[in-house]
């Protein structure tokens, strides 16, 4: 579903991403982890071109992201890539329901009534149908992030990208968001998550990519990775995590 081939990104002398070669298969859940500054957020943001790559090829569902295309085509492509931000980025001037309905109506041209039905279904799915007419400011962080996930799902993407979805949440709210993500994985959604939640990775991920200094140093099944990491940096990273 998502294929990185020799992807590189640099600014001047600083190499943000170096020779990334990796693939997220359809239906797979990949967790990307690593120390801060390793380039994991940059990597995931290149998929929908929130960051641009300097060389290499990126395929999403068979489409070459870098191919020259009109802005209309790029927007349509983006709408098919579900993205969930660390800081939720809900639109504060719209109600929860309107947040979810906006893009299907404006970007896909779906009729208001249909958009509303679908939005209510999604709210039901993330457990927030009672909050349909509330505004983001009235919700807790965990609730806002669940709405953000519903908003991304409204566009019926074949794959979802999560950029540290729980890093900005108070600990007691992390669980509710992870529960939604687990549900998505169980339903067979292709997912690429940048996260520090190692338990989530253990339980849900099919593979773990460990990144440092812009390179993917190790990819393995979660059990293998957590039990016996191969790369010395990965070993150091995991031991640092455990010593908390």
């Amino acid at each position: 579903m998502i294929t990185f081939s020799n992807v590189n990104k640099w600014y001047g002398d600083y190499r943000a991403l170096t020779d990334i070669n990796a693939e997220v298969k359809k239906g797979e859940v990949v967790v990307v982890c690593g120390p801060s500054g390793s380039g994991k957020s940059t990597l995931i943001r290149t998929v929908n071109r929130l960051e641009e790559i300097k060389s290499g090829q990126l395929l999403f569902d068979g489409h070459d992201i870098q191919a020259p295309m009109s802005s209309y085509q790029l927007n349509q492509l983006r709408s098919r890539i579900g993205f969930v931000f660390q800081s939720f980025n809900l639109f504060p001037h719209l109600s929860v329901l309107e947040n979810i309905m906006l893009s299907p109506m404006k970007v896909r041209g779906i009729r208001r009534a249909d958009a509303k039905t679908r939005a209510m279904e999604l709210l039901e799915r993330v457990g927030l149908s009672a909050k349909a007419s509330a505004y983001p400011a009235q919700l807790s962080g965990g609730q806002q992030q669940r709405v953000a996930i519903a908003r991304a799902l409204a566009m019926e993407p074949p794959a979802m990208l999560f950029d540290e979805p729980t890093s900005a949440l108070d600990p007691e709210m992390v669980g509710e968001v992870l529960a939604v993500m687990r549900g998505l994985a169980k339903d067979g959604m292709t997912m690429m998550c940048v996260t520090h939640e190692m338990n989530f990775a253990r339980e849900v991920a099919d593979r773990v990519w460990f990144m440092d200094a812009g390179c993917i140093l190790e990819t393995a099944a979660p059990e293998t990775f957590f039990r016996s990491p191969q790369h010395p940096r990965a070993q150091r990273f995991l031991s640092d995590l455990r010593s908390h």
């Binding site: 929908n48 929130l50 802005s71 709408s79 098919r80 980025n89 404006k106 896909r108 991304a152 566009m155």
Partner: peptide
């Protein structure tokens, strides 16, 4: 993040 979220959802710049 507001513009990023909107663009990520597929809205055009003007949209």
């Amino acid at each position: 993040g507001q513009m990023e979220a909107a663009r990520a959802l597929g809205h055009s710049h003007l949209g």
